[in-house]
C-alpha cells in the first residue's frame, strides 16, 4: 500500500512540474487572438561567445622608442555586456644574461568592444622604451612578455 501511495505521489509531483501546453483558442465569440513569438537567447546561449586575436609576438627594432601593436575582438554576447581586454607587462625585455631593458604598455591598456556584437574589431596599443634604456643596454636578443586578459564587463 505504501508503494502505491508513493507512486501516486510521485506522479502527482511530476504532473505538478509539467509545463502546460499553453494553447489558445478562437471560436464564434472570440474571433481574434494574439500569440507571442519568443526567443530566449539568454537561456539558449548564456553569456554568448567571443574571441580575441592577439599577436603571438611584437617585434622591436633596436632603438625603437615606440612600437604599435593590435589585437582584434569578435563577439556575440548579451545586450548589456561588452568584451573587455586588459594588457599588462608581465616581464621586461630580458637577455640570456638576465640583463633587462625596461618597457611600458602605454595608452589603451584596456580595450572595450564598442558593442555586444563585433566582428574583428581592431584595438591598438603601444609599447614604449625610453631612449636611455637602449643606450644603456648591451647588444643582445631580449624578450619580454605582455599578458592579455579578456573578460565580459557591463556595457
Amino acid at each position: 500500500m505504501k508503494k502505491v501511495i508513493s507512486v501516486v505521489l510521485a506522479l502527482v509531483m511530476m504532473m505538478a512540474v509539467m509545463v502546460p501546453a499553453f494553447a489558445a483558442t478562437l471560436d464564434v465569440n472570440t474571433q481574434s487572438g494574439n500569440s507571442t513569438v519568443l526567443v530566449d537567447g539568454i537561456t539558449d546561449k548564456g553569456d554568448g561567445t567571443y574571441s580575441v586575436e592577439i599577436p603571438a609576438s611584437v617585434d622591436l627594432i633596436w632603438g625603437d622608442t615606440t612600437k604599435a601593436g593590435e589585437y582584434k575582438i569578435t563577439s556575440q554576447v548579451q545586450t548589456d555586456k561588452r568584451v573587455k581586454v586588459t594588457l599588462a607587462k608581465a616581464k621586461d625585455l630580458t637577455n640570456a644574461a638576465n640583463e633587462t631593458i625596461e618597457f611600458a604598455v602605454a595608452d589603451a591598456t584596456t580595450g572595450i568592444a564598442n558593442s555586444a556584437v563585433v566582428n574583428n574589431e581592431a584595438h591598438t596599443f603601444n609599447l614604449t622604451i625610453d631612449a636611455s634604456e637602449w643606450a644603456a643596454a648591451s647588444i643582445a636578443t631580449y624578450e619580454g612578455t605582455i599578458t592579455f586578459t579578456a573578460e565580459l564587463a557591463d556595457a
Binding site: 507571442t36 519568443l38 526567443v39 537567447g41 554576447v77 548579451q78 556584437v117
Partner: peptide, 8 residues
Amino acid sequence: AIDTYSDT
C-alpha cells in the same frame, strides 16, 4: 546581441 526578443 544575445538577449530575449519577442513579437506578437
